[in-house]
Amino acid sequence: MSVRNNLSFKRIFKANDIDIKPKNGFWHELVKNKALFLMLLPGALVLFLNNYLPMFGAIIAFKNFRFHEGGFIPSLLKSEWSGFKNFEFMFATPDAFNIIRNTLFYNLAFIITCTVISIAFAIMLNEIYSQKLAKFYQSAMFLPFFLSWVVFNYLVYAYLSPDKGFINMTVLKLFGQESISWYNEPKYWPLIIIIVNAWKWVGNNCIIYLAAIIAVDQELYEAARIDGANRWQQIIKITFPQIAPVIIVMFLVFVGRIFNTDLGLFFQVPRNAALLRPVTQTLDAYIYQTLIGLGDIGMSSAGAFFQSVVGFITIIAANLFVKKIDRESSIF
């Protein structure tokens, strides 16, 4: 009797064992946590439609796209493959070199100027005696971050307008100089673009560095003081090394995006002036103008695909470095 009981018990146990296995699978999890899956659904759907479908659509760069009957997807599939033709056309244009050079040059310039200025201001904000003034400066610096690029377009124009701008009509007149036709003179624009970019971003980056500076352990400074280090020595020997991980991580995040530029800065601020294009056209501006202005799907999609791929490589590389420095800060 006992043996039989034992056997049947075992049988039940085994049967249960078999049942348990599929319960660990996806479907069981879906039923058990259906509320959590329901919460993910809207976001996952948005990402699918807005981000994943275009990834599939990126094959358009290798096609000679023509609209066929039946909508976009059938047209995409029916269009002939053209290999690397679109890329050949794009890189054969005399602008191609300029565009890539501009993209890289401006990004490098932005990385350097924004990092240096933001850190300098963050240190100053931390060092000045009056906390109230520091708050005020910080708010004022932060303001440009809140403005649309279209607003920047107008604010810059208020200074640089050839016949009404503040610089031509007031500043240059005051010094008896001739007016400058700013929107026709490419040579000034690299500097203007770099200044406008800093204007928009410095306040924002400054807050991040300031947060890092405030988080530094105060005991380190006290110990240094007892050893007789003055404030500047403390800044160089303690503040900098302590915030170095944040600086490096921010730097690498910038580097990861080195093939991307803000269309607002390069399209709105120079007012899309034709004469300025040799120095203001970056990959994003080129893709946008070729797509919307010229309606050339082949060349613009080649540009966009090129940007996606090199961007992917640089982000992965930058993230590998971030991971080495500070595990917490890597994005994946």
Partner: peptide, 27 residues
């Protein structure tokens, strides 16, 4: 899985052209 599903969109994008064409024609 769902974190990666989301973060992958930060790493790779279909690009402006494909996004635009899908936005106009499909969405």
């Amino acid at each position: 899985f769902f974190t990666f599903y989301m973060i992958f969109t930060m790493l790779f994008s279909g690009g402006m052209v494909s996004t635009y064409l899908i936005g106009v024609n499909l969405l």
